[in-house]
Structure formats: C-alpha cells, structure tokens
C-alpha cells in the first residue's frame, strides 16, 4: 500500500503539486477557478500552445527548434501588413506558406544536411530577426481597419461563449494528437526519435521524417501568428522575442524528453497550460509578473528531475 502511494507520488507528483497549487490559489483568490478566468488563462496560452504543438513534433525526433520565436514575429508582421495590403484571406494564406517555407529550410539543413539542430535554428533565429527588420523597415505595423475586419475573429472572437483562439488551440491540439497517435507519420516520428538507427533499418527515411516535423513546426507558428496578429491588430519587431524559450519550457514541463521518442501532445497541452495557470495564479495573488519566472525555473527543474529519477529508479545520477 505504502508502495502504491509512493509510486503514485512519483508518477503523478507534479500534477498533485499542481493541484495543490491550484487549490491554494483558489482559496486565496476566489476568482481564480471561475469559468471566466479559466477561459482568460486559456486565451493567453493559446498562442504559445499552438506553437508548442509543432515544436513537440520536432522535439519528439530528438531535435530542437529555437527559431519559432523570431518566426512568430516575422509571420505576425507579415499577416498584419498583408492584411492592409492584400486583404485578410490572402494574408492568412501567405503567412501559412511563409511558415511552411521557413520550416522547410530548417528541415533541409537539419534533416538532409545533418547539421546540429540547436545551431541551425539559432542561426535561423538571427536570420529571421534580420528579415523582420528588412520587411518592416523597423516600423511597427498596425491593421488599418481593426474595428471592421472579420480577421478579428481569430484573436478576439467568441463562439458559444468560448474564445475562438482557445477553440483553435484545442482543435489544433486534437488534430496534432491524432496525427501523432494514429497515423503512420506519427509512428515514424516516434520511431526516429526513439531509435534512429533501428528506424532506418526498418525502411523509414529519417531525413524526410525530420524534415516534415520542421514543416509542421513552421505551420503551427503560422497559425499562432494569425491569432497573435488578430488579437493585437498590429505587430512590433520584438513581438515574438523569447517565445521559443517559453514554448520549449512548456514542452519540457509536460514531460516530453529532449532526447526524443517519448512525450505526447496532451503532455504539451498540460505543460503549457500549467505555465499559464501558474502565471495567472501568481498575478491574482498579487505577485508581480516576473515572479512567475522564478516559479517556472523551480517547476522545470523539479518536474524533469522527478521524471528522470522515476525512470532511473533513483534520485541522484
């Protein structure tokens, strides 16, 4: 019996701790667990959440994508600017295509040429920052007719009382989850991440698999940029700065391994939502916003350590 409790604590200790945290905040700030606030939190996490879905694909193959933050900036600038220039629909199409293209370049360099993913996506981060400045000329862009465009629906709309970005996030998460769990592509992603050599011996072309995960990551960042552009109705040159780290933190917090092969979409959804609720809860308790970073630090270390310790069977390496 004692052992079962121990096992439960080990396996779900983090979620239990999180529930305790939720309870504690709710006790002190009654507005915390109201439907309105929960929807607010979800609305806030929807952008990082959508990005994290694609990044999860990349991380599952044992690789990284640090370029998503800069890509978000670029794509938000594009969607807002093109909205003024070409109208909402072409803007959306162009944004998604640009996202796919950047993902394809990352995928080419990492998957086919075999360069180190960390450095390649870091270089892409720098390159895209330059591209943003080149595109915008350093100026902020704003949607001219923010009050009347139907484009507002992605970031600001409601459907049956649920914010549209939340619906988009959840639908995208379900699709991504289904793809990973139930399609042959998903199986290849887990295969390549779990054991690349064995996958190659099984006739899987690891290069293409890796390539496509980066394309997925570019696409989900495009989706996030549409939500972002619609919500802000404008874009600064730094709008996505640091998002790559928040997204990665959410993925890691969910328990997806950076070594690849283990993790899932629902874990990412939980990880990224936990970050959102921690942030919101601390604000409701009256802490300044930056305290959440300290808590995030502690939570990441503890979560990954517990996960690792449980797999290893002992706490210390």
């Amino acid at each position: 019996m004692g052992q079962t409790i121990n096992g439960v604590l080990r396996r779900h200790g983090l979620i239990l701790a999180f529930l305790v945290f939720l309870g504690g905040v709710a006790f002190n700030a009654p507005s915390f667990l109201t439907p309105g606030n929960i929807l607010d939190v979800l609305r806030q996490v929807s952008i990082t959440g959508v990005m994290a879905l694609g990044v999860t694909f990349v991380v599952l193959t044992g690789r990284l994508d640090l370029s998503v933050g800069s890509l978000l900036t670029l794509l938000t600038v594009i969607v807002v600017d093109q909205h003024n220039f070409a109208g909402p629909f072409p803007a959306i199409v162009m944004t998604l295509l640009a996202g796919l293209a950047v993902g394809a370049v990352n995928g080419l360099l990492v998957g086919f040429i075999g360069l180190n993913a960390l450095i390649v996506t870091l270089a892409m981060l720098s390159f895209l920052q330059g591209l943003v400045l080149f595109y915008s000329g350093g100026a902020n862009v704003n949607v001219a007719n923010a009050q009347e465009t139907w484009f507002a629906v992605f970031g600001r709309g409601d459907f049956l009382g649920i914010p549209v970005p939340v619906i988009l996030f959840l639908v995208a998460a379900i699709i991504a989850g289904l793809v990973l769990q139930f399609t042959s592509f998903g199986r290849r992603v887990y295969g390549v991440g779990g054991n690349e050599t064995a996958s190659i011996f099984s006739g899987i072309d690891a290069r293409w698999t890796v390539f496509w995960t980066y394309v997925v990551s570019g696409f989900t960042t495009g989706l996030a940029a549409i939500i972002m552009g619609s919500r802000v109705m404008g874009a600064q040159n730094t709008i996505g700065q640091g998002y790559e780290l928040t997204v990665l933190a959410g993925v890691i917090l969910g328990g997806t391994s950076l070594l690849g092969g283990s993790g899932s979409i629902w874990r990412t959804v939980i990880g990224i939502s936990m970050l959102g609720f921690i942030q919101n809860g601390l604000l409701l308790l009256g802490f300044p916003y930056y305290v959440q970073w300290l808590v995030t630090w502690a939570v990441i270390i503890i979560a990954v350590w517990i996960d690792l310790g449980a797999k290893r069977g002992r706490i210390f390496a």
């Binding site: 139930f182 399609t183 042959s184 998903g186 199986r187 290849r188 064995a198 099984s202 899987i204």
Partner: peptide, 13 residues
Amino acid sequence: LPHLRLFSELSIM
C-alpha cells in the same frame, strides 16, 4: 514499424 503502409489506410494506422 517496417510495414506502416500495410498497417494503415490513407496513412491512418
């Protein structure tokens, strides 16, 4: 794993 196509229809396992 080596026969994903045989175990799927339209890519769905």
